[in-house]
């Protein structure tokens, strides 16, 4: 029982981190109708920038400055890259972001090399916050949870309660009308793209020290972010949150408990072939949940696409 609580917290951390990435991606998608393949690369940039800044100014300045830099780069990419490609349609846009992802990875390797970066958590956040039945919860994780919740709260507030948020929401649904009303819609798009990438940057800053900062970090997380927003429903912020948490808990619990396929299959009523090593079904029978934990989200995505193609909280036409 104690371990359940610990796993809930661990899953929450994973989920919230995923949310910070998918929130920006889903916002950008609902705005421009284009999937930003380079989104996870901005996450990587965030980690590398923060590492570089932390060498000179310490972790906290890195947390403050790196996302800003990433956001400005993101806004620049929208203004001078995507906006020009936009007129040629969606496919060139996709290819543009895909190329950008490759470019960023190469640039990062060019500047920092291919090794792991020794990006450390700050001294003040080292050590355990509390322990549940001998399992310590590191202080840094608690910090990650609070920061993510703070950002989610802030985002929700800006989008639903402020004038800027209303203009953004209106611009997402009826850009022409909003433009006719005298608002600068391209500026809104640029702003949202910048904020979205800055969010990915924040995720990179706080994930860098725990999930390690290396040139492959974007690839490792890249596909799962898409899975998240497909499950949550393209363009839905709330859906992204729910999907992130589901994925976080799903993978954490699958890894933490050794559920064996053998038990499930015998539970359903199949009999185990004997001897197992001669059976064609050997691979299926010997599976355990930790082995397949990281592909469960993909399985979930397939199921969602079959039974609810527009995602958990997506609108049918979105």
């Amino acid at each position: 029982m104690d371990l359940v609580l610990v796993n809930l917290i661990d899953g929450l951390v994973t989920g919230l981190l995923l949310f910070m990435l998918s929130a920006g991606l889903t916002l950008i998608f609902s705005m421009m109708g284009v999937l930003n393949f380079a989104h996870a690369s901005f996450y990587m940039l965030g980690a590398y920038f923060a590492y570089q800044i932390s060498i000179f100014l310490g972790f906290w300045m890195g947390l403050l400055i790196a996302p800003l830099v990433v956001g400005v780069i993101g806004a620049g990419v929208e203004r001078y890259g995507l906006r020009r490609v936009h007129q040629y349609g969606h496919v060139p846009e996709l290819i543009f972001t895909f190329g950008l992802a490759l470019l960023i990875e190469e640039v990062v390797q060019f500047i920092w090399g291919k090794d792991q970066m020794p990006y450390e958590i700050p001294g003040i956040l080292e050590g355990a916050a509390f322990a549940i039945a001998g399992n310590t919860i590191p202080l840094y994780k608690v910090f990650m949870i609070f920061l993510s919740l703070l950002i989610f709260g802030g985002l929700l507030y800006v989008l639903t309660k402020t004038r800027v948020g209303m203009i953004i929401q209106a611009a997402l649904s009826y850009p022409k009308t909003v433009e006719a009303l005298g608002h600068n819609v391209p500026l809104v798009f640029m702003g949202v793209f910048g904020v979205g990438t800055a969010l990915a940057g924040v995720a990179g800053v706080i994930a860098g020290p725990v999930l390690s900062t290396f040139p492959g970090m974007a690839v490792v997380l890249g596909s799962i972010v898409f899975v998240t927003i497909v499950i949550g429903g393209l363009g839905s912020l709330f859906g992204a949150l729910v999907a992130s948490l589901i994925i976080g808990w799903l993978t954490t619990f699958a890894k933490a408990y050794d559920v064996r396929m053998e038990d499930i299959l015998t539970g359903i009523g199949f009999t185990k072939p004997d001897p197992i090593w001669d059976s064609a079904w050997q691979d299926l029978w010997t599976l355990t949940s930790p082995q397949i934990a990281d592909i469960l989200p993909y399985l979930l995505m397939v199921l969602i696409l079959i039974f609810r193609p527009y995602g958990l909280f997506g609108k049918r036409d979105a």
Binding site: L3, V6, N7, D10, V13, T14, A133, G134, N135, V210, L211, G216, V220, L221, I224, T251, T252, F253, K255, A256, D258, T288, P290, Q291, I292, A293, D294, I295
Partner: peptide, 20 residues
């Protein structure tokens, strides 16, 4: 136990099992 190669983002659940 075995985990997928190069796919695990966060090893925390494994560490929990190891420690406990």
């Amino acid at each position: 136990e075995l985990h997928p190669i190069g796919k695990v983002k966060d090893f925390t659940p494994y560490s929990r099992k190891i420690v406990s």
